[in-house]
């Protein structure tokens, strides 16, 4: 089964560039990505630019409306994701707990929908 691991954190929380903690934190991501690739679990994964760069789109009566900013102004924002191929939820949760941001933010685990043919 494929699971989407959505990484949420408050922007500006956690290790910041220029601090001693930042290097090991980023290395944690490099190691994690390498681990899931080695294990054959990795499907995709990316970090996202900050919410200051977000644009939210909707279509109202055929007219495209764009808005500056993220869809929901929540304390923690989506900052990146991994798409992993796991045995079951237990395995997905185990990997989610290894994502460095889990220590100061949250990782939401969502199974990818399978369309019955």
């Amino acid at each position: 089964m494929q699971y989407m691991l959505l990484i949420y954190a408050t922007e500006g929380s956690g290790p910041q560039p220029g601090t001693d903690e930042f290097g090991p934190f980023m290395k944690g991501y490099v190691d994690f990505t390498e681990d899931v690739k080695q294990a054959g679990k990795f499907v995709a994964g990316d970090a996202l630019q900050p919410i200051a760069t977000a644009t939210t789109v909707s279509v109202q009566g055929g007219k495209t409306e764009t808005m500056d900013g993220p869809f929901a102004e929540t304390k923690e924002q989506l900052g990146g994701y991994y798409l992993l191929d796991c045995e079951d939820l237990d395995e997905a949760v185990r990997y989610a707990a290894m994502i460095p941001t889990a220590e100061h933010g949250h990782v939401e685990v969502r199974p990818v929908m399978i369309w019955d043919s």
Partner: peptide, 10 residues
């Protein structure tokens, strides 16, 4: 749907 396994945990 979430794939909660049907087995004893490791």
């Amino acid at each position: 749907l979430a794939g909660i396994p049907y087995r004893c945990p490791g």
